[in-house]
């Protein structure tokens, strides 16, 4: 499969939020504001790409030779947790204003299913290092775009005339339904 193909699959046709339902908890639970979801999305892109590379290297050169692939879930989550902590410390040291903006979202990324999900899909699809790099970037970019778009629409909907029973979560899910139908057309 060519790299462009992998990019399009990760970004559009198999969008991580709309076809695999990952990263929804963070969207519905915490980030219903546009600014929040943008910061959350960019930090997810960052963490996903780096942790995919590390996970791939550890999977290929440690777990597979020692026949311990059943440990992959534990290993990957450990990598992600450590990386998030490192990124947090690094940003704190380098840029304190950025840290203030991102700070509260960083711990949440560890338990964001989009990160672990992307890593697992990448490993399951037997991609090589370059392909996994492209896939994880595309898929997390897909997350950022969808989460940002949905939160923009949600901000508008807050002031709209919506039936009382559909206020808040139901209407957000209806919007997601329509977007999922649109995205399934790309395939």
């Amino acid at each position: 499969m060519s790299l462009i193909n992998i990019f399009i699959v990760g970004f559009l046709t198999e969008n991580i939020v709309l076809t695999k339902f990952l990263g929804l908890c963070s969207f519905l639970g915490t980030s219903n504001k546009r600014k929040n979801s943008f910061f959350m999305g960019t930090s997810v892109v960052f963490v996903t790409v780096i942790s995919s590379i590390f996970s791939y290297l550890i999977y290929k050169y440690i777990l597979v030779p020692f026949d311990a692939t059943y440990l992959r879930t534990l290993m990957f989550i450990l990598i992600i947790a450590c990386l998030v902590k490192l990124v947090e410390l690094f940003i704190k040291k380098v840029n304190s204003t950025l840290y203030e903006n991102l700070g509260i979202y960083l711990p949440l990324i560890t338990t964001n299913c989009a990160v672990l999900g992307t890593v697992l899909v990448g490993i399951n699809s037997n991609y090589n290092l370059i392909e996994i790099l492209v896939y994880s970037f595309a898929s997390s970019l897909g997350y950022l775009v969808v989460i940002y778009t949905l939160s923009t629409i949600r901000e508008r909907l807050d002031n709209g005339a919506i039936p009382k029973s559909f206020k808040d979560y139901p209407i957000a899910l209806i919007v997601a339904t329509i977007m999922a139908i649109l995205f399934s057309r790309f395939g």
Binding site: L18, T19, F21, P163, K164, S165, F166, K167, Y169, P170, I171, L173, I174, A176, T177, I178, A180, I181, S184
Partner: peptide
Amino acid sequence: VKPAGAFLALALLLAFINFMKS
């Protein structure tokens, strides 16, 4: 049974629960 239906089913169930509550 497609991905979009999952969102739709949950949205309608939530709305139904809200409706019963009110």
